[in-house]
């Protein structure tokens, strides 16, 4: 299943990711941390979407649970590693409860149910002012030390936090890879293709989906638990259904049919977002230098990068059907025709 070329690629990328802080500017490092966290979030979503065939439109609820629990505990001086653990456990527990009810349905009904549950979580976060800070969220979440007793691991500066994220996300991705490539993962894919056949084989599909739901929630919780100390804030927007749409977009962009698709999608999406935000004013400057366009464009600096993002996403999604990764693989096959896909 895994040949030598794959191992070489993975080893080189991990070594590269570890060496990057030496050469990268601080902001690129922040961007990379964001990509890792959103990538993990999208990967956890794809365990349900790509592998199990269930479109969850409320995945942000588990991300936000991880983020709020971890943020709240860090604010109350709980050691950071325990806070992360608590965030993950809280997300697992929530996913177990809501997942138990959600997996009774599938297709659009499942999507609507998960959406409804996540908006419930959002409302609780928004209204429970004493604990969650309501609309303001929990601000000033600083984790300065990992807090493992006996060993002092300081987390000052952006590169230390990047390393922590890299290690935890790498472990999580490895676990996800093992899960999807285990007999359990095969069953998930079988349930996606033909769940009635699985039922006839005597497999409890509902339980299968439930376990997948819990696992997906847990990994999303981990991404969230690392997110709030990274952003220094946990605000209710990360529980809103619009935030649930982000991993959907990333996964579709990168390709839900491949394990690494969501990671590729997250990289492309965040890269695009950042690039458009920092370059849109050069676009207005260029436009103003043309005849027929007013000079005031330079000083007005219209904020239209969302529009540009949409305009760029349309050709990308239309042309790379099945995701960017699948298209790259097709090109790879053109050059190495003998290699079969993994």
């Amino acid at each position: 299943m895994f040949d030598r070329l794959h191992w070489i690629i993975i080893t080189i990328s991990i070594a590269g990711l570890f060496l990057l802080p030496v050469i990268l500017a601080p902001f690129d490092l922040l961007l990379l941390t964001e990509i890792l966290l959103m990538g993990l979030f999208a990967l956890s979503f794809n365990l349900l979407f790509g592998y199990t065939g269930l479109l969850s439109f409320g995945h942000a609820a588990y991300f936000a649970t991880g983020a709020y629990v971890c943020g709240y505990l860090v604010k109350h001086s709980v050691p950071f590693f325990l806070a992360i653990l608590a965030g993950v456990i809280a997300a697992l527990v929530l996913a177990a409860g809501l997942g138990y009810l959600s997996v009774r349905l599938d297709r659009i009904y499942f999507a609507m149910l998960t959406l409804a549950f996540s908006m419930m979580v959002y409302t609780i976060i928004f209204q429970w002012r004493d604990v969650t800070g309501g609309s303001d969220g929990i601000t000033g979440i600083f984790a300065t030390d990992l807090g493992i007793p006996g060993i002092s691991i300081k987390l000052q500066g952006f590169s230390a936090y990047y390393y922590l994220t890299l290690i935890l996300v790498a472990i999580a991705i490895y676990l996800l890879w093992r899960i999807t490539h285990s007999p359990f993962g095969e069953l998930l894919q079988a349930s996606r293709e033909n769940y009635q056949r699985l039922l006839f084989l005597g497999i409890d599909v509902r339980q299968l989906r439930w376990i997948a739901f819990i696992l997906a929630g847990g990994f999303a919780g981990l991404a969230g638990a690392l997110w709030s100390p990274f952003q220094r804030v946990a605000n209710p927007e990360i529980a809103h259904w619009t935030f649930s749409a982000t991993p959907v977009l990333m996964t579709v962009l990168g390709g839900y049919g491949r394990f690494a698709g969501p990671l590729v999608g997250a990289t492309l999406f965040i890269g695009l977002e950042h690039w458009l935000q920092s370059n849109q004013r050069y676009f207005w400057q260029w436009l103003a230098s043309l005849p027929l366009f007013p000079d005031t464009l330079v000083e007005r600096q219209l904020n239209l990068w969302h529009l540009f993002l949409g305009l760029l996403l349309i050709p990308l999604i239309l042309s790379f059907q099945g995701g960017l990764l699948a298209s790259i693989e097709k090109i790879g096959k053109y050059f190495f025709p003998q290699r079969s896909q993994s």
Partner: peptide
Amino acid sequence: FLQQLGWATMGFLIACN
């Protein structure tokens, strides 16, 4: 055509960056 459009968009992005 769509495929080419997509790669052209990617190329445009890299060139602009």
